[in-house]
Amino acid sequence: MDNLKIYSQGNIDHLLIARDGEIKLGERVNVYQHEERALSGDSISVDGLKASSSKFVLFGIPEDIGVRANLGIAGAASMWRPSLVAFLNIQSNRFLNGEEVLVLGHFEIDEPEDSSLMGLRNKVAQIDELVYPVIEKIVAAGKIPIVIGGGHNNAYPIIKGTSLAHEEPIAVLNVDAHADLRELEGRHSGNGFSYALKENYLNNYFMYGLHQNYNNEAILNQIDTNPKFKAVFFEDILTGADFTDIVNEIGSVVGLEIDLDCVQNVLSSAETPSGFAINDIRKLILTSAKKFSYLHLSEGATRMLDGRVSRLTAKLVAYLVSDFVKGYSS
């Protein structure tokens, strides 16, 4: 049965690589505490989250059902655990202590019995219902979610949960090669923002780094005609466009979505030889983290179904998560 596995300190300790004379983040992070151990998302309470001193709540959605439902290659489910291990084994020091972060756990999601395209899309809709209430509680508790995916389909329940907690539609900045504004044809990784817009959870939608070659004409027409949309294409960045105009328009409640397939040579279903350098993304986060109500890292992988493997994706995610906490706290 699908559920949220809540971590104990013992779960964290199992992932640590101890070294004499050093303290790792995993020795300092917090876990969810309750008189009766929470076993699922339903048993997490806003008060229980408020009881933690941590500002950030980190959890994973290790699934690639949404990617496959969008005719992509499986592999995104592999990103969570190696990334968590890499993050927990960062040094605890003057720059980042670890107590800033509560490590909540990860969603355990069963494969659908129906593996057809529509069966996969129906399963994604079930994942939506699993994820958004947890996000809503985290935000209602005054915390900032940091979500490691998983497919970009999870943008929709994250946006929905944040919107419900704030009782208003929110804005989102999506750093991505793809707008993910495909048709309302059943849920998948290519239409999370379409559904969020349709259901009035998403207000202004800012896209940064879209690739001209990989957004169809119907999506381009949407961008041109919808006043809620603003897009900067990667080709425009190559010829001088920057992040400044978008930052100036961002409101008070805005989520940060980073699809790792926009980063050059990062393993993903839509891996690209042309894209942002890793340090471009790090700089964006470090200089603007305070503006964002959540961070969602999606689509990266350490192992793809077609045999491609990269251990560097996990370390990249650890850098981006630690940058977000540092950038917000500075």
Results as ranks from 00 to 15, higher is better:
Val31Asp: 03
Tyr32His: 07
Tyr32Ala: 08
Gln33His: 11
His34Phe: 09
Glu35Lys: 14
Glu35Ser: 13
Glu36Ser: 12
Glu36Val: 15
Glu36Met: 11
Arg37Val: 15
Leu39His: 04
Leu39Ile: 14
Ser40Tyr: 02
Asp42Met: 09
Ser43Ile: 10
Ser43Trp: 02
Ser45Pro: 06
Val46Cys: 02
Gly48Tyr: 05
Ser54Phe: 00
Phe56Thr: 10
Phe56Met: 13
Val57Cys: 05
Val57Lys: 07
Val57Gln: 03
Phe59Gln: 05
Gly60Pro: 02
Asp64Thr: 09
Asp64Ser: 12
Ile65Asp: 04
Ile65Tyr: 00
Ile65Gly: 01
Gly66Trp: 00
Val67Ile: 11
Val67Leu: 02
Arg68Asn: 04
Ala69Pro: 01
Asn70Ala: 12
Asn70Ser: 11
Leu71Cys: 08
Leu71Lys: 15
Gly72Ile: 13
Gly72Leu: 11
Ile73Tyr: 00
Gly75Arg: 00
Gly75Met: 06
Ser78Arg: 02
Ser78Thr: 15
Trp80Glu: 12
Arg81Ile: 15
Arg81Ala: 13
Leu84Arg: 07
Val85Gln: 13
Val85Cys: 08
Val85Lys: 15
Leu88Trp: 07
Leu88His: 08
Gln91Asn: 14
Gln91Glu: 14
Ser92Lys: 00
Ser92Gln: 06
Asn93Gln: 04
Arg94Val: 14
Arg94Lys: 12
Arg94Ala: 14
Arg94Pro: 01
Phe95Leu: 09
Phe95Val: 05
Gly98Phe: 00
Gly98Arg: 02
Glu100Arg: 06
Glu100His: 04
Val103Lys: 08
Gly105Gln: 03
Gly105His: 00
His106Ile: 14
Phe107Pro: 05
Glu108Tyr: 00
Glu108Pro: 00
Ile109Trp: 00
Asp110Cys: 07
Asp110Met: 10
Asp114Ser: 07
Ser116Thr: 15
Leu117His: 03
Met118Leu: 13
Met118Trp: 07
Gly119Arg: 10
Gly119Val: 15
Arg121Leu: 08
Asn122Tyr: 01
Lys123Trp: 00
Val124Met: 07
Ala125Phe: 01
Asp128Pro: 02
Glu129Asn: 15
Leu130Trp: 06
Leu130Ala: 09
Val131Phe: 07
Tyr132Ala: 14
Tyr132Gln: 12
Pro133Lys: 11
Val134Glu: 04
